[in-house]
Nucleic acid binder design. Sequence first.
DNA 1: AGTGGCCAAGTGGCTGAGCCACTTTGCTGC
DNA 2: GCAGCAAAGTGGCTCAGCCACTTGGCCACT
Lengths: 236, 236
Amino acid sequence: MSEALRPMARPRLYEQVVERLRQYAAEDGLGAGDRLPAERELAQRLGVSRASVKQAIVVLEVQGLVEVRHGGGTYLVRDTLDAAEPVERLVERRRRLPDVLEAREAMETKLAELAARRRTDADLAVLDDALAHMAKDVEDGGPGVEGDRRFHAAVTAAAHSALLAEFMRSIAEQIGESRNESLRQPGRPKRSLAQHRRILEAVRAGDPKAAAAAMRRHLRTVAEVRLLTWTPEDDS
Amino acid sequence: MSEALRPMARPRLYEQVVERLRQYAAEDGLGAGDRLPAERELAQRLGVSRASVKQAIVVLEVQGLVEVRHGGGTYLVRDTLDAAEPVERLVERRRRLPDVLEAREAMETKLAELAARRRTDADLAVLDDALAHMAKDVEDGGPGVEGDRRFHAAVTAAAHSALLAEFMRSIAEQIGESRNESLRQPGRPKRSLAQHRRILEAVRAGDPKAAAAAMRRHLRTVAEVRLLTWTPEDDS
DNA sequence: AGTGGCCAAGTGGCTGAGCCACTTTGCTGC
DNA sequence: GCAGCAAAGTGGCTCAGCCACTTGGCCACT
């Protein structure tokens, strides 16, 4: 009900112009390499100033959708002016956990496998440290959230794969939420700690298959715990 | 040597302004919530017109680094004006194949598993169609590139995981290159086709473990073929 | 036929002045 | 105190204009 009182949308003119340009490119079937109408003409036909048209074009330029040649016109780079939706936004919209947990399992089992293959002594030291941190917290009756986070981050680092690390980073926030809930379940911190130990030992031993298997088992129990309290409508 | 004849860099004014603003925010220790100087003042101190300052601010606004309040000033959203590096750019810089192939294996085995669990009849029809397309091309002595692409896209679609699909999309270009090279190896198209068949049958049978295993086997042979001709220095 | 100089038209780059809309601030009068 | 209001400050947008660059056509020269 307070829905009606949310801040009014106050669209900037240049945003509307960007929208119109996307529309124009789509409807007129413009493709890569085609030239947009001149700024002066666009301004006149849209009924706005040239400055606003220019701001809109700057937006498209920054997004890499358009190439502006001084004195030569403005050209489409791709077949469309639709911006590729940033991963972060998609994650936001798709807050639904299952997707995230699936992606996490896919990537992190691979990360464990790679970590077993590539970990350096320094990587192992960080892993040991993270595990010790979590162990101490759990002994003191804490949930071990920070230690858990550090352990998984250390595994990611030890895998030495910039691309997978980047993907993990983009769902880190969602994983953090699930971690909080999971570790608040009674008995969970101790079991989680034990599972971490098995992962670490496999990584230390340089056994990729064992590491992947241990990580998979760990993540599946986490996912189970988390999904027990989850319902599709509960988008929190 | 032809390095000297590459296109001249002709930086836009607004880009320089953006750079100056980032610098200013960093050097003056501006943090989230702090207000930028007024547009008129910035224009005067930078010695540029207000329009150029505004274009720069539009850039920062589009990148979500700054919030502009009509009549109230322009405020930093985060503690820095440095743009988070988009995944696409990272992929570009990290053109090195191993990373990409690792990520691909991690995600696509999971996709195969999910596809076996969730595929609808319509999904199966698309998979059948893609496989038939590839089979026909291979029979005619072609490489079957397009059919291969469609098959893997169909598996991704059948998994019904928007997040993994998005991740796949962001490395699609690199995968495409590797696909071209792989399928150009003599004998590869036929073997690849057979492997696709096994994947499809596991998905049709609704056997997640078999589907994941078949996909993993397929991707590992592809990676092997590709990596034989790859060397770290060859960044092409 | 090819080359380079030249010019005019078209287009983007950028400016300055100006007005409007909105927010913030602080004074005024109760 | 405090509500109301006016002024100052700030961003939104426009207009008119000049400059810089690209393109294409024409021409003189080789």
